[in-house]
Amino acid sequence: MSTTHSADALKGSVTSYAIWADDGRRLAEFYAAALGSEVGEPYSDEHGNEVAFPVTVGDTMYIFWTSSSFTAPAWPQQDLPFHMDLAFPDAVAAEKRLLELGASKPDFQPGGDHWTVLLDPCGQPLCISQAQPS
């Protein structure tokens, strides 16, 4: 017996992104500050240790997991499993603020005038750019 579903019934939606780090709390605090949000109630592992830290922005949740086996990619030599692109009304001021929050700026900058690459506090690349006027 075959089951049929309408196309709309099978459309999924992304509700969260999970991002591993050597210190999930530190990374959650960094991105919460960068995105004007707060770190939510942490999730604990089976031993009661806080290991996952949610940050909600709009309808999307980012969950920053602490992983003892995490190592940051050796960018640009290694391909990236993911990276975030963040746009700001004032990209110059945002860069300064993100550096104050613990990001670093690598020498290699492939974006020219279009974007700037930073490394978040766990060493993962992120790109920042000027928000386009709406």
Rank of each mutant, 00 (worst) to 15 (best):
L99A: 09
D59K: 09
R26W: 10
A34Y: 07
A21P: 00
P125T: 01
K11F: 14
I19V: 10
K11M: 13
R26I: 06
P133W: 15
G40K: 02
F64D: 00
K96F: 12
V117M: 11
L118S: 00
G12M: 15
L35A: 07
T66Y: 06
A34Q: 04
E46Q: 11
P81W: 06
Y31Q: 01
P110E: 01
G24C: 07
A18V: 14
R97E: 15
G58N: 10
G36I: 07
A93E: 14
P89T: 09
G12D: 13
G112A: 04
A21G: 11
E50N: 07
Q124T: 06
F70L: 03
V51G: 00
L126H: 01
S104H: 09
F82A: 04
V57M: 07
E100C: 10
C127Y: 09
M61A: 12
D107N: 04
G36F: 07
G112D: 10
D45W: 14
G58A: 05
F88L: 11
V92R: 08
F70Y: 15
F82C: 06
Y31C: 01
G36W: 03
F64I: 06
Q78F: 12
A103D: 05
A21C: 11
A52R: 08
F53S: 00
E50W: 08
A131Y: 11
P81N: 12
L27G: 00
G40T: 01
S67F: 07
A74R: 10
Q78H: 13
L98V: 14
A91L: 12
Q130N: 10
A7G: 03
P133C: 05
L99T: 01
P73K: 03
A72W: 03
S44Q: 11
V57E: 05
G111M: 05
F70C: 03
S67V: 06
T66D: 01
T66V: 04
A34H: 00
P81R: 05
R97Q: 14
D23L: 06
L99P: 11
G123L: 03
S69N: 10
L119G: 02
S37F: 07
P106F: 12
Y62Q: 02
A74I: 02
S69F: 07
D45G: 05
A91M: 04
V51S: 05
Q109F: 09
Q77T: 10
Q130Y: 13
R97W: 09
Y62H: 05
T4E: 12
Q78M: 11
A33V: 10
